[in-house]
Design a protein around this nucleic acid. Structure first.
Length: 125
RNA sequence: CGAGUUGGCCAGGCAAUCGCCGCUUUUAUUAUUUGUAAUUUAUUAUAAAUAUCUAAAAGGGGAGGAAAGUCCGGGCUCCAUAGGGUAAGGUGCCAGAUAACGUCUGGGGGGUGUGAACCCAUAGCUAGUGCAGCAGAGAGAAGACCGCCUAAGCGUGUUUACACGACGGUAAGGGUGAAAGGGUGCGGUAAGAGCGCACCGCGCAACUGGUAACAGUUUGUGGCAAGGUAAACCUCACUUGGAGCAAAAUCAAAUAGGGUUCCACUAGGCGUGACCCGCGCCGGAACCGGGUAGAUUGCUUGAGCCUUAGAGCGAUUUAAGGCCUAGAUGAAUGAUUGUCCACGACAGAACCCGGCUUACCGGCCAACUCACUUU
């Protein structure tokens, strides 16, 4: 199982069309003061994730890169633990306060959001 | 050693594990071509070569001095373009460097600093037009508020004399102002005044030095001023076509309309009309062309970097040798742990260069200046 921690092209949302499909058919929308998470059930074999981090919200490119890279790292590990569960297309929208969090706190935030997502999905099923 | 000036360099290091994006090599897979063998004579097997995709392994590489702001200049691409003029914009001491510049270097002039050095949008207001608060009598061929001067003629005191006054003269003094139309001294005068003279300053011309800007213990000449502002219009000189890599090129599903060839063949459908004739509209296939989504190229070998030597005060340039140093595309260069110290600022490539400007924790090196101490 050497491929465990990969984060390849297939696990990203690539085209504007991919993003639009998530926005148009959201199955769950969960937000806190730092980020908003959109999720759509997917038939594919992997979770896919896309980021929308506006220049208006987070000013410098360095800060935007940091947030994006950290979430990507988190999902890389998350994919391993969620092998046999329902697959989703995710879109992460960052808010202004995102840049004030350090890396461990970003982890906590996204973790709590994913927990809430799971609860909500279970309810609807 | 302290304070400082200028120029250059660095931008946390090391190790382990996991991850991302190119590149190179190898292997596997797939396709095509060729050869050989077998037979079902167009299939199978096998070998070699080439190519692409995917997968794996190994090796090696992977943000900056500002990558930023997008303020200038250039390359590159497309569009426009006979030539000339006008408009509009830009630049503005001189010489040089450069692909080019609003950049850089050297020099002149002015200013700041004890100094090393630094700063200057530094052409023309003796072509024209305009602008200048308050104060002040007057602010641009100026001006009589106080002051100074004067009494020939005039007025008043009746008259000569004398006194006072109006007219008049005066820019030396006071006062106002950022600025009051050269300064000092002597002569001169009613008082004054470049009115005259000397010296200083200034303008013009000559001469000398310098490529030039410009300079001068030089000579002559002019009594000597219509001052400031041109990041005010303007004048003069030089200069500028437009848009940008989402440029542009190639491949190319779809869709609208088009062309050529072949097939079908006057049959059928629809409209007009009560109906017929008539008139109008409507075929199928292949190929070409077209170009949207998408993909690929453009995309990193370049006015490149390093070293040495030569030319030059220098910017820079010439020669030789060496090096290849990110190329992503919803967009890679990251995460965790350990460890060391100075405890890590500003900040992320997006076609590429040359600058400028702005942001910034600090560290190192060189040259120079000032002060102090010591010899």
């Amino acid at each position: 199982m050497k491929k465990r921690y990969e984060y390849a092209r297939t696990s990203r949302l690539l085209t504007p069309g991919d993003f639009r499909s998530v926005f148009d058919q959201v199955d769950a929308k969960i937000s806190c003061s730092e980020i908003t998470l959109l999720a759509k059930k997917s038939e594919l074999e992997t979770n896919r994730i896309g980021f929308i981090i506006a220049k208006k919200q987070i000013k410098t490119a360095v800060a935007r890169n940091r947030v994006k890279r950290h979430f990507r790292e988190y999902f890389r590990k998350f994919n391993v633990h969620a092998q046999n569960e329902q697959k989703f297309d995710f879109v992460v929208l960052a808010r202004k306060s995102c840049q004030d969090l350090d890396n461990p706190k970003l982890d906590e935030t996204i973790q709590s959001l994913l927990k809430r997502l799971k609860k909500r999905i279970d309810k609807t099923v």
